[in-house]
Amino acid sequence: MDELHDAAAALAKARTVVVFTGAGMSAESGVPTFRDALTGLWARYDAQALATPQAFADDPDLVWGWYEWRRSLIERVHPNLGHEAVAAIEDRAPRTVVVTQNVDDLHERAGSRAPIHLHGSSFAPRCAGCSRPAPVTASREPEEGRRLAPPRCGDCGGLIRPGVVWFGEALPGDALEAAVQAATECDVLLTIGTSGLVHPAAEIPVVAARFGATVIQVNPQPTPLDEVAAISLHGTAATVLPALVAAAWPTP
Results as ranks from 00 to 15, higher is better:
D59C: 02
A149K: 15
D46W: 03
L4F: 10
A43S: 13
V97Q: 02
G168H: 06
A134D: 07
L38P: 03
V207H: 06
R140V: 13
L118M: 12
P79K: 03
D155G: 11
S29Y: 02
V103F: 05
D155V: 12
A87P: 01
L233I: 07
G65P: 02
G158R: 02
L233G: 06
A114P: 05
Q181R: 15
P224G: 11
T39W: 11
P60T: 02
H117W: 02
W64M: 02
H117S: 03
T223Q: 05
F211N: 12
A12L: 08
S72N: 05
P135V: 10
R113T: 12
P133C: 08
G235D: 05
I116W: 03
V180R: 14
A178P: 08
P162N: 06
A202Q: 08
E108I: 03
G163M: 03
M1E: 15
H117G: 02
E84F: 09
G24T: 01
V180Y: 15
E227C: 12
P205A: 12
D61L: 00
P200L: 12
A85D: 09
R15Q: 13
L73H: 01
P250G: 10
P222S: 15
L4C: 07
K13I: 13
L244I: 11
G235S: 05
P172S: 06
L41D: 15
G120L: 07
V207Y: 06
G22I: 01
L50P: 01
V31C: 00
E144M: 11
I74Q: 00
E3T: 14
A248Q: 13
D6Q: 14
V207M: 06
S26G: 06
R161Y: 02
L189D: 05
A10R: 10
L241G: 12
T96A: 01
L106C: 04
H234G: 13
A57P: 02
A57S: 10
P220I: 11
R147F: 03
T33Y: 00
D105C: 07
P224Y: 10
P220T: 10
L197M: 13
N80C: 05
D61C: 04
L225Q: 12
F211Q: 11
A201E: 06
E169W: 03
E28C: 06
G145M: 07
T21Q: 00
T214V: 15
E3R: 14
G40D: 12
A114E: 15
P142E: 11
V31D: 00
D174I: 09
P252H: 15
M25R: 00
H5Y: 14
V164T: 14
G196W: 11
P220R: 09
P150A: 09
H107A: 01
T194I: 05
P135G: 08
A23F: 00
E143D: 14
S131T: 12
C186T: 15
A27R: 05
L118Y: 07
A128D: 07
H199E: 13
Y67A: 08
P135A: 13
V218T: 08
D187W: 14
C156W: 07
A9G: 10
E90P: 07
G129Y: 03
N80A: 05
C127E: 00
C127G: 02
A237V: 04
V188S: 12
V188M: 13
S26M: 01
R44W: 04
M1C: 13
W64Q: 01
A134K: 02
P205I: 12
P252C: 15
G196A: 14
T184Y: 10
I160G: 03
L38H: 03
V103N: 03
